[in-house]
Structure formats: structure tokens, C-alpha cells
Write a protein that binds this DNA or RNA. Sequence first.
DNA 1: GCTATGTTTTGAACATGTTCGAAAATGAGA
DNA 2: TCTCATTTTCGAACATGTTCAAAACATAGC
Lengths: 216, 216
Amino acid sequence: MKSERTRALIRDTALASFRERGYDETTVRLIAHEAGISLGNAYYYFPTKNHLVQELYVEVQREHRSVAVPLLETSDELIERLGIVYRSGLATLEPFHAFAPGFLSAAVSPRSPINPLGDDSTEARELSVGLFRDAVGGARHSLPDDLARSLPEVFWLGYLLLALFWVYDSSPGRERTLRLLDRGLKLLGIALPLARLPLLRKPLRELVELIGEVRA
Amino acid sequence: MKSERTRALIRDTALASFRERGYDETTVRLIAHEAGISLGNAYYYFPTKNHLVQELYVEVQREHRSVAVPLLETSDELIERLGIVYRSGLATLEPFHAFAPGFLSAAVSPRSPINPLGDDSTEARELSVGLFRDAVGGARHSLPDDLARSLPEVFWLGYLLLALFWVYDSSPGRERTLRLLDRGLKLLGIALPLARLPLLRKPLRELVELIGEVRA
DNA sequence: GCTATGTTTTGAACATGTTCGAAAATGAGA
DNA sequence: TCTCATTTTCGAACATGTTCAAAACATAGC
């Protein structure tokens, strides 16, 4: 019974510290100390420091969702809708940019509990993929059905890559990432209709399917 | 004078251990012990465990180069030549696949001494990028000059992404990665000539330039 | 051979994530 | 209220990468 309160206390303390100090500087000892509990006790509730980061991920994805969903009402054009999701995503991440390297290197390992593709991240991932499903689903377009079905996963993976670029982006205001996004979307807007050309269609479909299989 | 011998001893011991045990299981204490020196002494020669990994990278790139260069003699077709470089690269990496997650998470942080985009990695990177310069330079093609000049860097980045996919690939014999490569190359073979279409040319050039700027 | 200077080597120390056995608190049933 | 099993809490311990002051060694100049 006390259980739930202690757990929440640890969680909240940890998240506050991650937001303030980032991944590396947030030690489990520090969390425990700030929460007024012992080191061992923190590990009674969370098997790993990274499991605490997982909580942060879910919170951030919820935040993204709450910003993006209303904005999606404003357009039914696929590229515009993608732009909305990507841009609001980057905006949500921005406060973490200074700490991004720490989080990245903890998250990138396939077996890490906070790897976005891993089982432990299902909740956060579904929140995020869902956004891309909304973006594609609510758009008028004339894409082949099989392609349209694979696209949300592919766009979500594109989001991970964009975030990777963003981590490395030291330009002021992350203008480089934003420009990459603009140009990528523009090119996509031109190239996507070409997907109906018989010549391109088959290899593109095969490629897209394979990419959709990344997590497996 | 003794200096050089000790340094080489540490280096060789470390590389052997990385090849055998991977990144995580190779502790600096273990290296020191196997080399018959003290822990502190290892740090006298290499400021960081990762600086030892850097030595491994250079060796692996040299290996890749020595395999790929002769193979490049066999074709002057761009896509084929790219295939040669990519495939021989994956083959060179294969013995490390089991340990790849450890290396990846140490390498991915922008400020890590073994980040492929960082200053410390210049030697290994130049070896690798050079291979793509060879592949593009020695091929007959009819691409706009500015594009052709940016392509090696872009293809090299593509190589990093392919390697990222490869790390996550648990399929037997890495067949998934090889299929992704095949299909990507096929699509590239079809799509690249389209780069001359006036409509696609400008946005593509802008995108390619931006991507070439990743490390900056 | 001896001393002074610079190089190389050592091992103890630190902070970190994590584990674990034991102590303390809790609460259900008598 | 007391007992005892369960849940919760604690803090010492471990292995790791890294730092550092001091010891050991080598050598040049006398």
C-alpha cells in the first residue's frame, strides 16, 4: 500500500532530475537522496536506472501526442500532416537537446530497456507510431493500399533517424534539422506520387516492407 | 624508448581481447593483466578505453580497404561498385556482430572518442570515405557534377546507417541486411537517373548537401 | 660511480550502476 | 494486543572506468 506512494515518489523525483540534469548527471544515489530514501530501495521499485528513463519516455510521448493531435485537425494533406507530427515532435524533444547524447547512448543498444524498438518500450512506441497512423490515416492520398499500410511504421522509423540527426545538430535553434525536415518533406511530396509508376512500385514496396521489419 | 614497445603490447593485447570478447567483457584491468602491466600503466599510454577501440577501428578499416580495392577493378558500373564496397564492408564487420551492441553504444555519443563522425576518428573515417570516393570516382555515370561530388560522403553515411541496421539484424547470416542492401541498390539504380529531372534535381541537391553536412 | 632530471610504472582511491542479505515496518488473523 | 508472514527498507559490497601521487627506473653529465 505504501508501495504505490514510494514508487510514485521515486518516479517523480527521477523524472524531475532527468529534465534538469539529464541522464549522466542523474545518479541513482542522487535520486534516492532527493527522494529521501535509500539507494537499495530505489532498486526495489525499478530494476534499472533505464527503467526510470522509460517512464520519462512515456511522459514525453504523451506530451507530443497532446500537442500534435489538435494540430492535425487543421489539414488533410499527407505531407502537411507529417510535417505537423515531425515538427511538434522535435519541439517536444528540444528541452532535452543538451542531454541527448547521454540518453542516446543508453537507448541505442538493442537489448537496452529503453531501446525504442524493444519490448520494454512498447507503450511509448505505440503512442508515437499511433501519431503517424493518424497522420496517414486522416489524409487524402492516392497511394496503393499495401504501401499506405506500411507507411506509418516507416515514417516513425524516419522520425527516429530525424531524432538521431537532431542529436548531432549543433546549429542554433536546430535550424539544420528543421531544414533537413523541410527539404525531405518537399522531396517526398514530389517523389511519393511516383510510387505509382510500375517501374518503381515493386522495388519500393519490397524496400518499405523490409524497413517495416526492423523490429523483429 | 621502452615506451613504444609497451604501447604496442597494450594495443595488441587490447585488440586481441576486443576481437575475442567484445567491448563490454574487455575490461581495462583485464587488458593490463594479460599484458603483464599495471592498470595505471595502461592509462599512461591510452587516455581512455575508447582510445583503444579507436585502434581497432583503424585496423578494421584497413582490412576493409585491402579487400575492396582489388574487387573494384572488376566493374565500372556505379551501382555494382557501391555493392562491392558495401558488401565487403559488411563481411569485414561480421566477426563483430555478436559484440556490436557494446561497440555501438560506446560509439554513438557525439562526443565519444570513437564516434565515427568525430575528430578522433579522422584516420579511420578517411580510410572508409576514401573507398566510396574510389567507387564513385572510378565509375562511368552521367550525374551532375555537384551531385557526384557530394555522393561519396552521402554513401558513406548510408554505410553507417546500413551498419546500424546490421547491428539490429538477428536474421541468420544477416540475410535481412543483405536483402535491404540489394533492394536499396536496385532502387537507387532506377531512381538515381531521375536526379536529372529538373523537378527533382534542385530539392535533391539541397537535401544531399545538407546530409553531407552532418559532421560540422 | 654518482647525482639530477625526466620517463615509466605502480597501486590505492573515487564515483558509478547494480546485487544481496539482513533489518525494520506492516498488517492479517488469533 | 500479540504473532508471524509478507512487504519494504537499508547499507555494505562488488566490478567498472578513470585519476593521481608517489615509487621505480633510466639516462645524461660529471
